[in-house]
Design a protein around this nucleic acid. Sequence first.
DNA 1: CTTTCAGCCTGGGCGC
DNA 2: TGCGCCCAGGCTGAAA
Length: 283
Amino acid sequence: MPELPEVETVARQLDPLIRGRRLRSVEILDSRLAGPDWSALSGRRILRSFRSGKQVALEFDGPRGRQSLYLTVHLRMTGRLIWVPSVKGKAAEAVARDAYRYKVPLSDKSLRARFRLEGGELRFYDHRRFGVIELHELLPEPPGLEPLGPGFTAARLAELLAGAKGEIKPWLLRQDRIAGIGNIYASEILFACAIDPRRAAGSLSAAEIKLLHRHTQRILKLAIKHCGTTFSDFQDTTGSTGGFQRFLKVYGREGEACPACGRPLERLVQQQRSSFHCLDCQR
DNA sequence: CTTTCAGCCTGGGCGC
DNA sequence: TGCGCCCAGGCTGAAA
């Protein structure tokens, strides 16, 4: 689930649930996550939960003059952060199940870490175990531009694209250029711009760059508004389930009619990732 | 320098 | 029921 809008959704939903709570203990259930000295967090209070690039970051206070610590979570493909309040038995499990619904449901087998806080625990589930959790004294800066920040302008985008090599769709996935776009939104953004994903990144006209700038912001903001995209077998939805999948125009729709012209949409593979596009609408 | 491409993991889904 | 293959919202690092 983890592109910018989904990570933003998780960080926002988590914030009011865990802000101000003190951490009691950490239990790591996956040896891949065993690196940091988790005891450094014990007794510290969470100041806020926010997004940095595609990562969820939790700021912990620095008691007695010590500096803050930042816990960063990269969800990669299947990571999930679930808040389970300390209520009795079945009710707590129901909260965990309903907090977010995915194609791969929560199971105890994919529970990788638990952060016990006052009043509940923050669980990290990760079916495929690609997720990364780190501890930092200074918040690491995302390598690329924040697309919803003031620095992301059409002019800046044009500068970045001026020297760009390769095709535009893989370029949009480069986190060291723009931080936050992933495989779903790259296809959706290019469809909105009517730009062929195979176009050379350096070949976009000034008008196309303006479109790219505008639709990148528009689509990311719209997806955040709908709590991101959830691929799910569940027909049942809850308030915190992503709703943007209803608005996907091309992603995952190979063979379906283009919403603009009706021609069957195509799937192609670029750098081992699927891209979806319309041969007529995108040039 | 670029670009490709296996690898990291754990399945689900499909064709045979 | 089983086997082999392809697929998956991300990213790294080695090879070419």
